[in-house]
Design a protein around this nucleic acid. Sequence first.
DNA 1: TTGCACAACTGCAATTTTGCAGTTGTGAAA
DNA 2: TTTCACAACTGCAAAATTGCAGTTGTGCAA
Lengths: 212, 212
Amino acid sequence: MSQLLSLRDRKRAETWAALHAAAARRALDEGLEGVNIEVVAEEAGVSARTFFNYFPCKEDAVLGLKKPSVEPEMLAAFDIEGDLLAEVSRLMLAVVRSIQGGDDSAELRGRIYEAYPQLRHRRYQYILKVEQLVLETVASQLAESRRWREMPANSAWQGHDVDDVAFTIVLTASTRMRHVMQKTWSNPTATAQFQALDQGLELLRDVFKELL
Amino acid sequence: MSQLLSLRDRKRAETWAALHAAAARRALDEGLEGVNIEVVAEEAGVSARTFFNYFPCKEDAVLGLKKPSVEPEMLAAFDIEGDLLAEVSRLMLAVVRSIQGGDDSAELRGRIYEAYPQLRHRRYQYILKVEQLVLETVASQLAESRRWREMPANSAWQGHDVDDVAFTIVLTASTRMRHVMQKTWSNPTATAQFQALDQGLELLRDVFKELL
DNA sequence: TTGCACAACTGCAATTTTGCAGTTGTGAAA
DNA sequence: TTTCACAACTGCAAAATTGCAGTTGTGCAA
């Protein structure tokens, strides 16, 4: 038998799911205030202290949020030589999406976000973290890229710091994440979100045509 | 004698300053962990409960942060018909700056941010709130503006929602705030920050010249 | 298979944060 | 000047959060 996960990892995943399920159910049944750490922990069969080994706060347990990370398959799909804004935006969206469950639980999450809009702030805060992660990747790859190393002498980027350029691109992509979230709170599926991203990039280009 | 502030308002300001001073001094003397609410409150002559009537958390007391708000004089300096990106960015910077003390305490704050970079996150979170405030202003003013109501038929903005356009502009300005903060942690004076903003806008234009 | 290093869980105590309800004093209107 | 509504402060209790130190069991290498 191939073990996809070790016993330890499997139990950890089970505990995580149990805590999330208990928190989400109580939130939908009794409202956000009805989520009591002690009760949730007991329902999941662990101590209250252990709850905080899995989630930094109640909100994250209700939403089932995980720490963001840039996975190898995301990097593989990323091309620093391509359409930079689109590439970086898609990379960010992939990372942002990975901190939550898949499309199977999208409808449930949609209902939670509709019921408790306060929780949206939490999502925005995570985007700040994602920025940092993606910025490291983009800054290092851009510095090594052909488009930077073989930059034409008349390029508008001439004279700018590569980190400043990467910063600007990543933060611009980040604004598109916010746009995607805003448009897809009630339907956060992959299809809807990547489509919203494309529309957001289109919007961005049109807005800037008149401003720059 | 002209009363700039009523007795009530004066006492409130004094208590605020006392709490902030006590928290900031202890942070610089003993480190962030050395800031104990009970002690700070006692030093300021109020109860621990009252501390939370002034600040939502320790960090804000250390930094002396106030709730952001768009003041009338900022609105007066704002021109929806002007260079939109520059106008909105300057409005945001004014609001962001107003949540903290003036240039007289800039050097002190600079030292705190240098000593405890974790606190910078707090500043970023406040920028999220400022966005919301500024977005309301810009969205409503843009909808009533000449540039929107008398938009030429060939404008790239044709067919877009005015709220989406305002959203994109405000979030772009927000990225410039982040740039300003990053460049001026150690010297957050008005001069340095408005200069950093102009450089940031220049950077933005140059980056986009190659991307759009 | 044994034994070790470490991940996960735990209780406990301290601190932070919030809700509530009661007291006091200020500001303003009559 | 008196009166009244309310802002500010308070204690208290509950809940959330964190640090620390000890126990247990898994994963792995000898």
